[in-house]
Simulated assay, not measured.
Amino acid sequence: MAESRALRRPLPRPRAAVRLVCLPHAGGSPSLYQAWAQLLPPEVELIVACPPGRLHRIDDRWPASIADMAADFATELAPWLDRPWVAFGHSMGALVGHELVLRVQRMGLPVPARLFASACAAPTLRRDRGQHVMTDDDLCAELAGLGGIDPELLELPEMREMVLPVIRGDYELLAGYQPRRGDLLSCPVSAFVGVEDAEVSREGAARWSEWTSAPSEVVEFAGGHFYLSEQPERVIGELLDRLPTVGVSRAFV
Protein backbone atom coordinates (compact mmCIF):
# COMPACT_ATOMS: atom_id res chain seq x y z
CA MET A 1 0.00 0.00 0.00
CA ALA A 2 1.26 3.44 -0.93
CA GLU A 3 1.91 6.22 1.55
CA SER A 4 -0.77 8.91 1.77
CA ARG A 5 -0.33 12.62 2.32
CA ALA A 6 -2.18 12.50 5.63
CA LEU A 7 -0.69 9.33 7.12
CA ARG A 8 3.00 8.44 7.23
CA ARG A 9 4.96 5.41 8.44
CA PRO A 10 8.32 6.53 9.87
CA LEU A 11 9.54 2.90 9.93
CA PRO A 12 7.46 0.60 7.71
CA ARG A 13 6.81 -2.84 9.18
CA PRO A 14 4.51 -4.63 6.71
CA ARG A 15 4.48 -7.80 8.84
CA ALA A 16 3.56 -6.05 12.08
CA ALA A 17 0.80 -7.64 14.13
CA VAL A 18 -0.79 -4.35 15.19
CA ARG A 19 -0.80 -0.75 13.98
CA LEU A 20 -0.54 2.30 16.24
CA VAL A 21 -2.14 5.42 14.74
CA CYS A 22 -0.97 8.64 16.43
CA LEU A 23 -2.56 12.08 16.19
CA PRO A 24 -0.75 15.29 17.25
CA HIS A 25 -1.82 18.20 19.45
CA ALA A 26 -2.99 21.64 18.30
CA GLY A 27 -0.28 23.10 16.10
CA GLY A 28 1.63 19.83 16.35
CA SER A 29 3.16 17.72 13.63
CA PRO A 30 4.30 14.10 13.22
CA SER A 31 7.60 15.04 14.87
CA LEU A 32 5.93 14.56 18.29
CA TYR A 33 6.00 10.80 17.69
CA GLN A 34 9.05 10.46 15.45
CA ALA A 35 11.23 8.86 18.14
CA TRP A 36 8.55 6.27 18.96
CA ALA A 37 9.26 4.30 15.79
CA GLN A 38 12.63 3.18 17.16
CA LEU A 39 11.24 2.44 20.62
CA LEU A 40 8.38 0.22 19.49
CA PRO A 41 8.91 -3.54 19.07
CA PRO A 42 8.89 -5.11 15.59
CA GLU A 43 5.32 -6.31 16.12
CA VAL A 44 4.00 -2.73 16.15
CA GLU A 45 3.92 -0.43 13.14
CA LEU A 46 3.64 3.30 13.80
CA ILE A 47 1.37 5.41 11.58
CA VAL A 48 1.48 9.16 12.27
CA ALA A 49 -1.18 11.60 11.12
CA CYS A 50 -0.17 14.91 9.58
CA PRO A 51 -3.00 17.47 9.65
CA PRO A 52 -3.25 20.16 6.96
CA GLY A 53 -1.20 23.35 7.23
CA ARG A 54 2.14 21.80 8.17
CA LEU A 55 5.12 20.09 6.55
CA HIS A 56 4.23 18.65 3.13
CA ARG A 57 0.56 19.59 3.69
CA ILE A 58 1.13 23.30 4.18
CA ASP A 59 -1.09 24.21 1.21
CA ASP A 60 -3.76 21.54 1.70
CA ARG A 61 -7.41 22.43 2.27
CA TRP A 62 -8.12 23.43 5.87
CA PRO A 63 -10.88 21.30 7.45
CA ALA A 64 -14.16 22.91 8.39
CA SER A 65 -14.28 21.12 11.75
CA ILE A 66 -12.57 18.51 13.90
CA ALA A 67 -15.08 15.97 12.61
CA ASP A 68 -14.16 16.96 9.06
CA MET A 69 -10.46 16.44 9.80
CA ALA A 70 -11.23 13.05 11.33
CA ALA A 71 -13.33 12.05 8.30
CA ASP A 72 -10.39 12.80 6.00
CA PHE A 73 -8.10 10.69 8.18
CA ALA A 74 -10.65 7.84 8.21
CA THR A 75 -10.75 7.76 4.42
CA GLU A 76 -6.95 7.65 4.22
CA LEU A 77 -6.76 5.04 6.99
CA ALA A 78 -9.27 2.58 5.53
CA PRO A 79 -6.71 0.56 3.49
CA TRP A 80 -4.56 0.10 6.61
CA LEU A 81 -7.26 -1.51 8.72
CA ASP A 82 -6.43 -5.05 7.66
CA ARG A 83 -5.13 -5.97 11.12
CA PRO A 84 -5.70 -4.92 14.76
CA TRP A 85 -5.03 -1.25 15.48
CA VAL A 86 -5.21 1.32 18.23
CA ALA A 87 -5.41 5.13 18.17
CA PHE A 88 -3.36 7.49 20.35
CA GLY A 89 -4.22 11.19 20.34
CA HIS A 90 -2.50 13.88 22.38
CA SER A 91 -4.50 16.91 23.57
CA MET A 92 -6.50 18.09 20.52
CA GLY A 93 -5.40 14.83 18.89
CA ALA A 94 -7.49 12.92 21.42
CA LEU A 95 -10.62 14.72 20.22
CA VAL A 96 -9.66 14.05 16.62
CA GLY A 97 -9.11 10.42 17.62
CA HIS A 98 -12.55 10.32 19.22
CA GLU A 99 -14.16 11.58 16.01
CA LEU A 100 -11.98 9.24 13.94
CA VAL A 101 -13.25 6.19 15.82
CA LEU A 102 -16.85 7.37 15.48
CA ARG A 103 -16.36 7.85 11.75
CA VAL A 104 -14.80 4.41 11.36
CA GLN A 105 -17.74 2.91 13.24
CA ARG A 106 -20.25 4.63 10.94
CA MET A 107 -18.32 3.45 7.87
CA GLY A 108 -18.58 -0.13 9.06
CA LEU A 109 -14.79 -0.51 9.18
CA PRO A 110 -12.83 -2.40 11.88
CA VAL A 111 -12.80 -0.33 15.04
CA PRO A 112 -9.62 0.09 17.08
CA ALA A 113 -8.93 -2.17 20.01
CA ARG A 114 -8.50 0.95 22.14
CA LEU A 115 -8.42 4.75 22.06
CA PHE A 116 -5.64 6.36 24.10
CA ALA A 117 -6.80 9.88 25.02
CA SER A 118 -3.69 11.73 26.18
CA ALA A 119 -3.71 15.06 28.07
CA CYS A 120 -7.35 15.68 27.20
CA ALA A 121 -10.45 15.85 29.33
CA ALA A 122 -13.68 14.27 28.12
CA PRO A 123 -15.08 16.02 25.02
CA THR A 124 -17.65 18.36 26.58
CA LEU A 125 -15.35 19.50 29.40
CA ARG A 126 -13.00 21.64 27.33
CA ARG A 127 -13.60 25.34 27.87
CA ASP A 128 -12.65 27.69 25.06
CA ARG A 129 -10.56 30.63 26.24
CA GLY A 130 -10.42 32.33 22.86
CA GLN A 131 -6.83 31.34 22.12
CA HIS A 132 -7.43 31.71 18.38
CA VAL A 133 -8.07 35.46 18.79
CA MET A 134 -5.34 36.20 21.34
CA THR A 135 -2.54 38.62 20.50
CA ASP A 136 0.66 37.00 19.31
CA ASP A 137 2.35 37.73 22.64
CA ASP A 138 -0.52 36.28 24.68
CA LEU A 139 -0.73 33.19 22.49
CA CYS A 140 3.01 32.62 22.75
CA ALA A 141 2.77 32.94 26.54
CA GLU A 142 -0.02 30.36 26.50
CA LEU A 143 2.08 27.94 24.45
CA ALA A 144 5.15 28.46 26.63
CA GLY A 145 3.07 27.65 29.71
CA LEU A 146 1.93 24.36 28.22
CA GLY A 147 5.43 23.29 27.23
CA GLY A 148 6.16 21.27 24.13
CA ILE A 149 7.92 24.14 22.39
CA ASP A 150 11.04 26.06 23.36
CA PRO A 151 9.93 29.56 24.53
CA GLU A 152 13.08 31.04 22.97
CA LEU A 153 11.93 29.85 19.55
CA LEU A 154 8.70 31.78 20.01
CA GLU A 155 10.75 34.96 20.33
CA LEU A 156 11.94 34.60 16.73
CA PRO A 157 9.72 36.53 14.26
CA GLU A 158 10.23 33.94 11.52
CA MET A 159 9.16 31.15 13.88
CA ARG A 160 6.03 33.03 14.92
CA GLU A 161 5.16 33.67 11.29
CA MET A 162 5.44 29.97 10.55
CA VAL A 163 3.71 28.34 13.53
CA LEU A 164 1.13 30.80 14.88
CA PRO A 165 -1.28 30.66 11.90
CA VAL A 166 -1.42 26.85 12.19
CA ILE A 167 -1.93 26.98 15.94
CA ARG A 168 -4.66 29.61 15.57
CA GLY A 169 -6.36 27.47 12.95
CA ASP A 170 -6.37 24.44 15.24
CA TYR A 171 -7.61 26.47 18.20
CA GLU A 172 -10.42 27.81 16.03
CA LEU A 173 -11.43 24.23 15.28
CA LEU A 174 -11.38 23.49 19.01
CA ALA A 175 -13.51 26.57 19.72
CA GLY A 176 -16.17 25.31 17.32
CA TYR A 177 -16.08 21.68 18.41
CA GLN A 178 -19.50 20.32 19.38
CA PRO A 179 -19.40 16.61 20.21
CA ARG A 180 -22.63 14.65 19.82
CA ARG A 181 -23.76 13.32 23.18
CA GLY A 182 -25.58 10.29 21.81
CA ASP A 183 -22.59 8.87 19.92
CA LEU A 184 -20.63 6.36 22.00
CA LEU A 185 -17.37 4.69 21.13
CA SER A 186 -17.48 0.90 21.04
CA CYS A 187 -13.85 0.50 22.10
CA PRO A 188 -12.18 0.90 25.52
CA VAL A 189 -10.58 4.24 26.37
CA SER A 190 -7.35 4.73 28.31
CA ALA A 191 -7.00 8.35 29.42
CA PHE A 192 -3.33 9.22 29.98
CA VAL A 193 -2.71 12.37 32.04
CA GLY A 194 0.22 14.18 33.66
CA VAL A 195 -0.34 14.78 37.37
CA GLU A 196 0.98 18.33 37.02
CA ASP A 197 -1.08 19.19 33.94
CA ALA A 198 -2.84 22.50 34.69
CA GLU A 199 -5.16 21.94 31.72
CA VAL A 200 -6.48 18.45 32.51
CA SER A 201 -7.44 17.00 35.87
CA ARG A 202 -7.71 13.34 36.74
CA GLU A 203 -11.44 13.85 37.22
CA GLY A 204 -11.79 15.38 33.76
CA ALA A 205 -9.85 12.51 32.22
CA ALA A 206 -11.98 9.97 34.09
CA ARG A 207 -15.13 11.28 32.43
CA TRP A 208 -14.11 9.67 29.15
CA SER A 209 -16.09 6.80 30.67
CA GLU A 210 -19.24 8.68 29.60
CA TRP A 211 -18.22 8.51 25.95
CA THR A 212 -17.74 4.78 25.46
CA SER A 213 -19.87 1.70 25.90
CA ALA A 214 -16.69 -0.24 26.74
CA PRO A 215 -14.46 -0.04 29.84
CA SER A 216 -12.30 3.02 30.52
CA GLU A 217 -9.45 3.91 32.84
CA VAL A 218 -7.11 6.73 33.84
CA VAL A 219 -3.34 6.27 33.85
CA GLU A 220 -1.28 8.99 35.55
CA PHE A 221 2.26 10.06 34.73
CA ALA A 222 4.72 12.44 36.35
CA GLY A 223 4.89 15.74 34.50
CA GLY A 224 2.66 18.31 32.87
CA HIS A 225 0.80 18.66 29.60
CA PHE A 226 3.67 17.23 27.56
CA TYR A 227 4.55 14.46 30.02
CA LEU A 228 5.00 12.06 27.07
CA SER A 229 8.03 13.94 25.75
CA GLU A 230 9.78 13.60 29.11
CA GLN A 231 9.32 9.84 29.55
CA PRO A 232 8.60 8.16 26.19
CA GLU A 233 9.80 4.76 27.39
CA ARG A 234 7.28 4.59 30.23
CA VAL A 235 4.47 5.91 28.04
CA ILE A 236 5.18 3.29 25.39
CA GLY A 237 5.47 0.62 28.07
CA GLU A 238 2.01 1.43 29.40
CA LEU A 239 0.68 1.55 25.86
CA LEU A 240 2.18 -1.82 24.93
CA ASP A 241 0.64 -3.43 27.99
CA ARG A 242 -2.76 -2.55 26.53
CA LEU A 243 -2.25 -3.69 22.94
CA PRO A 244 -4.45 -6.53 21.69
CA THR A 245 -1.74 -8.80 20.34
CA VAL A 246 -0.25 -11.60 22.41
CA GLY A 247 3.47 -11.15 22.95
CA VAL A 248 3.52 -7.38 22.62
CA SER A 249 4.54 -6.06 26.02
CA ARG A 250 6.77 -3.59 27.79
CA ALA A 251 9.51 -6.26 27.73
CA PHE A 252 10.36 -5.02 24.24
CA VAL A 253 11.09 -1.47 25.43
Rank of each mutant, 00 (worst) to 15 (best):
D72P: 00
F88M: 08
D59V: 15
F88W: 03
E45S: 14
L81N: 06
S91G: 05
E99K: 08
V101H: 03
Q105M: 10
V104T: 14
G108F: 00
L46Y: 10
P84K: 07
M69Y: 08
A71V: 01
A64E: 15
E76C: 10
A49W: 07
V44E: 09
D60N: 08
M107P: 07
V44G: 13
G53N: 12
L95Y: 12
L102I: 08
H98E: 03
T75P: 01
D68C: 06
A70Q: 03
F88C: 07
L81G: 07
L39T: 05
G89W: 00
V104Q: 09
S65N: 09
P52W: 10
A78D: 05
M92V: 01
A67M: 06
D72V: 06
L55H: 13
F73A: 02
G97Q: 03
P84E: 01
A49Y: 12
L55I: 13
S91I: 01
I47Q: 10
C50H: 13
P63G: 04
P84M: 01
A87Q: 01
A67I: 04
R106S: 13
D60T: 04
H98P: 08
E43S: 15
T75Y: 01
M69P: 05
G89L: 04
H56Q: 15
F88Q: 04
R57V: 12
R61N: 10
L77N: 07
V86I: 03
G89Q: 03
I47K: 11
V48A: 15
L102A: 11
E45W: 04
W85N: 02
V86G: 08
R57T: 11
M107W: 00
G53M: 11
G93I: 01
F73N: 03
H56I: 10
A87S: 07
R54C: 13
L39A: 11
F88H: 08
E45P: 15
L102E: 03
A70S: 08
L102M: 09
L55G: 14
P84R: 05
P42Y: 04
E43P: 14
V101R: 06
G97I: 00
S91P: 06
F88L: 14
G97A: 07
G108M: 06
A71P: 07
I66Q: 09
L55V: 14
G89H: 02
R83Q: 07
R61W: 02
I66S: 07
H90S: 06
V44I: 15
I66R: 05
R106F: 00
R103I: 00
P42F: 01
C50K: 13
D60A: 12
L100W: 00
L102G: 12
D68I: 05
P52K: 12
S65Y: 05
V86H: 02
L77P: 10
A78K: 09
P42E: 14
L81R: 10
V104M: 10
H90N: 06
A94S: 12
P42N: 12
V86E: 02
W80H: 05
Q105R: 13
A78R: 12
V44K: 11
C50S: 15
P52A: 15
A78Q: 10
I47R: 11
